[in-house]
Write a protein that binds this DNA or RNA. Structure first.
Lengths: 152, 152
DNA sequence: CGCACTTCGGTGACGCGTCAACTATGCTGG
DNA sequence: CCAGCATAGTTGACGCGTCACCGAAGTGCG
């Protein structure tokens, strides 16, 4: 490759915008969630997945659902177990495996946190966009994700 | 707030798409950049800012330009200084202050890394999008950023 | 001058995320 | 049976990012 394909002006606006959006929105939502309910966004994702499945989940199953690497999930589960948001249980069928279950505190935490978090997403993100933009945004995400996953 | 404003289906597609995109694209670009040139995306951002300014920059100036918190930047600079990508220098005018300068190795690193990184962004992101989508993406980012910054 | 206040930048602790390596268990073919 | 390999999950090290806090130096007002 002699000369790289530099980004044109429009692409730069989109790309820098995406980077800034990603960084600041994540930080802001995390800060709010933390302040409102003592949960991080990572905690939230795990708790949502567990509460949707209702009942014990295998670690691998959870990792597949969240599309997380297993070591990432393992670290996260350890931190959450330490705070009693969930429990790990032995798996009778496969002695290598482990089940993860929501604790009562974990269920309370996610139910308490969800409404304010959803409201934060609405007010920070969607209240500023019209339907067509939201639709296009979803298409953009699908298109880029297809390329990222194809070259993953 | 009695009943939270849950996300409708379109919003969920966009939001989950954004979250997935953000996570996987960041991971993938970081992995490639690391493999190709031994730099992280954070290193890259700092090096780009420094090489654009050409000449020493005050830490606060760099933080403002990158829109990073000063402690984040300070940690990053320490890691990069350890690897000799840059140097910190005393500031004669203000004894509290510090200048940051690119080292020769830092300049070589950014010049070597940039073409492949730009090509990765093009091929993973923009090759899958048409002009209208890119334009809308930039508008979305601006609109959401305005709200995030207003409530930051 | 002297005392409060701010600003500059750094530090330590801790959570998040990846990588490489490891343990323990299950599985499969000879 | 058992040797070899695959799978489930964990661990430790390290970089990234935030928070709370600190010390040093500038600033402004009595």
């Amino acid at each position: 490759m002699a000369e790289p394909r530099w980004l044109d002006e429009r692409q730069q606006r989109a790309w820098r915008g995406h980077l800034a959006l990603q960084a600041r929105l994540h930080a802001q939502l995390n800060r709010r969630l933390q302040a409102d309910s003592g949960l991080s966004l990572a905690d939230f994702d795990v708790l949502v997945a567990l509460s949707e499945s209702d009942g014990p989940m295998r670690v691998q199953e959870l990792a597949d659902h969240l599309q997380w690497e297993k070591s990432r999930l393992s670290h996260q589960l350890s931190r959450m177990e330490r705070r009693a948001l969930l429990e790990r249980q032995d798996c009778p069928d496969d002695a290598r495996g482990a089940f993860v279950v929501l604790s009562a505190a974990g269920r309370r935490a996610i139910e308490a946190a969800a409404p304010a978090h959803v409201e934060a997403v609405q007010s920070l993100v969607f209240d500023g966009l019209d339907d067509a933009q939201v639709e296009t945004w979803a298409e953009i995400a699908d298109a880029v994700l297809a390329r990222v996953d194809a070259r993953g």
